[in-house]
């Protein structure tokens, strides 16, 4: 399975993409006042962690608010999947009432995770605005009218294809985005 995968992004290109996303966010949010970054558990949270660290390095603000949101209990495909969903931990120790929220996920595919995330966000207050950052946008596979505001790379792939993002030091030796021709088994995380 691994051999058949095609690398979409890695090395310098990967780094440049992350840097570009950071600078786009800085352009919009400047000093990140009244703003929080929220990663969608658990793969989106890895991307969010990286973005958060890079942003802090670039703008020199040490404590941009950062949370991890688990959306398992809000999904609309509960009991409709062949394998059960296992929840991750939500780490949000702040309210988002009146704040500008930057929602971060690694792969934007059907849009259902983001729909669930928007529902879940409601439970932490009424945000002023919500914007979405997606590292990979699979624009032809959407089930819902949800689009990202900041996109790392757009991938046009067939429905049965699977896109995986690897993070150095977390689940891989290097940062890379891989495209598998067939769906990866769900237990591989």
């Amino acid at each position: 399975m691994e051999k058949k995968a095609r690398t979409i992004l890695q090395g310098l290109q990967f780094k440049l993409t992350l840097d570009r996303l950071c600078h786009q966010l800085i352009e919009e949010y400047q000093s990140f006042e009244n703003t929080c970054l929220i990663g969608v558990q658990d793969r989106g949270a890895r991307f969010a962690e990286r973005l958060h660290a890079n942003l802090q390095d670039i703008v020199g603000i040490p404590n941009i608010e950062f949370g991890k949101l688990d959306v398992t209990f809000y999904r609309d495909d509960f009991r409709r999947r062949s394998t059960p969903l296992i929840a991750s931990k939500t780490e949000m120790d702040f309210s988002i009432e009146g704040k500008k929220v930057v929602l971060i996920d690694d792969v934007l595919y059907s849009g259902r995770t983001i729909r669930a995330a928007l529902d879940a966000l409601q439970d932490y207050g009424r945000p002023k605005t919500v914007q979405l950052v997606a590292l990979v946008d699979r624009r032809f596979n959407r089930h819902l009218p949800i689009q990202a505001d900041y996109i790392g790379i757009t991938v046009d792939a067939l429905n049965e294809a699977y896109v995986r993002v690897d993070w150095e030091g977390l689940n891989s030796k290097k940062d890379q985005i891989l495209l598998f021709p067939k769906k990866e088994p769900e237990n591989l995380k």
Binding site: F73, Y74, F78, T90, S95, D119, Q122, D123, Y124, G125
Partner: peptide, 11 residues
Amino acid sequence: VLNRPIKKVPS
């Protein structure tokens, strides 16, 4: 979930 301000999920 039970320690959140809104203690309810739609599962």
